[in-house]
Simulated assay, not measured.
Amino acid sequence: MTLLRIDSSIQGPRSASSELADLAVAEFAANLPDETVVKRHLGTDPLPAEAWATAIAGAFTPAEDRSAAQQQAIELANSLAQELRDADAAVFAFPLYNYGVSQHVKTWIDLALAGGVHGERLLDGKPVVLLTTRGGAYGPGTPREGWDHNTAYLVRILADIWGANVTVIEREFTLVGVNPALDEFTELAALLKKTAHEAAVAAGKALATR
């Protein structure tokens, strides 16, 4: 069994989303220690921002006329699509940035789509754990209700386009303790963190015992 883990945080060791992924993958590995975990970190090793446009241009260019850059971009897109095909399950740690999906994740999605066959369900029927974190609160009744343009988009791609069986685990108020303006939410933030951590561990175990 091959588990694909992809992170996208730019927070390094302070990343709340990677912390959740660590918990899920550790639980998976504890139950299936001999299985393969393939890792990709879009935050620390981002894909070239121009690669998607170059791959698309190359796809509409006869193979014998493609530039070296076009051929490299097409090969990159194909490899990302194949990485999804080869995975039996996946853990994606994709935090909210600037109210939406990060540029690193968007580039990855666009390239993987370009590398697949049109309409191909690259994760068809496979279990995927989507871990997403938000610095503030975006739920019903909050000042930022409706401002999260990250989670629904990711589910649309992973589930509706690529056919994955998605489990979403969310953690809010990750900036409590960092931004003094949020100090009044310390107790709530601690509860949300505990709940998300427990859910991540449970999700990792579920991947291993499916």
Rank of each mutant, 00 (worst) to 15 (best):
A24M: 10
Q72Y: 01
P48D: 00
D34M: 06
T36A: 15
Y99N: 14
D65W: 04
A114Y: 03
W52F: 14
Q70G: 06
Q71L: 05
P95S: 10
G116D: 11
H118C: 01
K39W: 07
H41Q: 00
N31E: 09
A21I: 04
R14Y: 08
A81K: 10
D110N: 12
H104Y: 13
R121V: 01
A53Y: 07
Q103P: 09
L96E: 10
A63K: 13
P62W: 02
T44D: 15
S67E: 01
H104C: 03
D45V: 09
Q82A: 13
V25D: 11
T54V: 05
F94G: 11
S79E: 13
P46S: 08
P33V: 04
E120M: 07
H118S: 13
V91R: 08
L42R: 03
H118D: 11
P95T: 07
V25Q: 08
Q71N: 10
E83A: 15
D65H: 14
P62A: 05
P33A: 04
A77F: 02
V91C: 09
W108F: 15
R85K: 06
Q70R: 01
S79C: 06
A49P: 01
S67F: 09
L47I: 01
R85Q: 07
A29C: 14
N78C: 08
P46K: 03
R40N: 05
A29Q: 15
V25E: 13
G100S: 06
A69D: 11
N98L: 10
D34A: 13
Q70C: 05
L20V: 11
A24R: 09
A59P: 04
A24W: 10
A90R: 10
R40M: 11
R85L: 09
A114F: 05
A77Q: 02
E83D: 12
A59K: 14
H41W: 07
I56M: 11
A68T: 10
Q72D: 15
W108T: 06
V105S: 02
E64Y: 05
A63C: 03
H104G: 11
R121P: 06
T61I: 04
Y99M: 13
T107Y: 00
N31S: 09
R66G: 04
H41V: 00
V105F: 00
S67T: 02
A29Y: 04
A16F: 11
S17C: 08
P62R: 08
I74G: 00
A73D: 00
L20N: 10
A57D: 15
A59L: 13
L42S: 02
H118L: 12
A49D: 10
T36Q: 15
H41A: 00
V38W: 00
V101R: 00
F92D: 05
I109V: 15
E64I: 09
G119F: 02
A90N: 12
N78S: 15
W108N: 05
V38M: 02
T44I: 12
A81V: 13
E35Q: 13
L111N: 08
L32D: 12
L96D: 04
T54N: 00
T54Y: 08
L23H: 04
